[in-house]
Design a protein around this nucleic acid. Sequence first.
DNA 1: ATGATTTCTGCACGATCGGTCAACATTTTT
DNA 2: AAAAATGTTGACCGATCGTGCAGAAATCAT
Lengths: 208, 208
Amino acid sequence: MARAGTTARKTRNQMEKRQAIFEAALDVFSEKGLRGATLEQVAKAAGLSKQNVVYYFAGKDEIYAELLESLLQKWVQPLHDLTADGDPMDEILTYVSRKVQMSRNMPRESRLFATEILHGAPRLGEVLPTDLKALVDEKAAIIQGWMDAGKLAPLDPHHLIFSIWAMTQHYADFDVQVRSVLGSERSATRFEDAERFIKDMLIRTLRP
Amino acid sequence: MARAGTTARKTRNQMEKRQAIFEAALDVFSEKGLRGATLEQVAKAAGLSKQNVVYYFAGKDEIYAELLESLLQKWVQPLHDLTADGDPMDEILTYVSRKVQMSRNMPRESRLFATEILHGAPRLGEVLPTDLKALVDEKAAIIQGWMDAGKLAPLDPHHLIFSIWAMTQHYADFDVQVRSVLGSERSATRFEDAERFIKDMLIRTLRP
DNA sequence: ATGATTTCTGCACGATCGGTCAACATTTTT
DNA sequence: AAAAATGTTGACCGATCGTGCAGAAATCAT
């Protein structure tokens, strides 16, 4: 057959190889960007030949696009899990915890999205003003409800979410800078320190 | 002569052309990244031919390196201007103002540095652990002094500076996302709203 | 075992990019 | 005005990259 993946049906082997390519692509793309990375670097990182990679994916752009799409869900999951059920402050601090945890454990994913958005999000342009906006609006409404009920200090919920994104992701995206400024000793505990700092800041800010 | 710029002496014309190339390079590099941008795109944006650009600069990498270096000073100036002389809260809020202003008026510069650091800062790796660290340590010591004097609530000054960087630069680096989530109406006032939000947050946080 | 299907490679094309060089044009200097 | 220095362009080269394709190799079904 000409190429794998032309049909929706995927064998076990195909899934594994595709997964290996995804993993390699995440490594390479997050470090060098889409345009800065080469197919051969991805292939080598996946332990395959360049032509073999093309057998499993139509091309470089398709790998990148599918990788981005496959990570999107996981990336916004913590915000999804913020619900109106729990205690307001707890919900927000738990969200911060999970976001810091993601910066620590998934820095490649963070940098991948950061680079994409930084360059204008040409491959996310469709989903940002629809899905992401709807999600943020929904959660902002919940937070607004808490504020209206006097359970949190009144602040703009959208910008509150932005500030949490910014502060938490900063430690993944700009890790080199953070480590350089902190020095080698303080760098060891940078994520714990960051989590504590951000939580302290939000507690002081949001306390009614 | 083989090339301009081989000697340190620069004529008026050379300075102007080099400036035009810098301006064009800032446009192109901040949007596409170093590897994603081509010399011809820079040349076209500068109104010159590709060969003519190479006449004024040794090559693409040199343009990028010199551009980065020429912007570095301007980029950290606001932090330099934070001194122990003024009122603690005023100094910090003024710093926030200037950083938000830079995100609004110099988004290309912000994205240029963001991309560079995101990709490991291979061309800044020397200056981050020395100059930048020294600068941040100095200002962190000032803030720490204010906290010790009971003029500000006690918090980690380094992470305080990181959080200000993160929140303010977020509105330049991830502008597409911010605008998508806010929608067209609310986007119009995003920088004013952000400045107010961040200041409110810091006032509540740092109030002793 | 044998034929069909899947997986992988060798070869190579076309395009693009960064950079070189010689020649030509313009400006400045004497 | 002549000469020298500076500025600009056209033609081109080597390298790299993404991709297509024929066919070999391996795996699987019968």
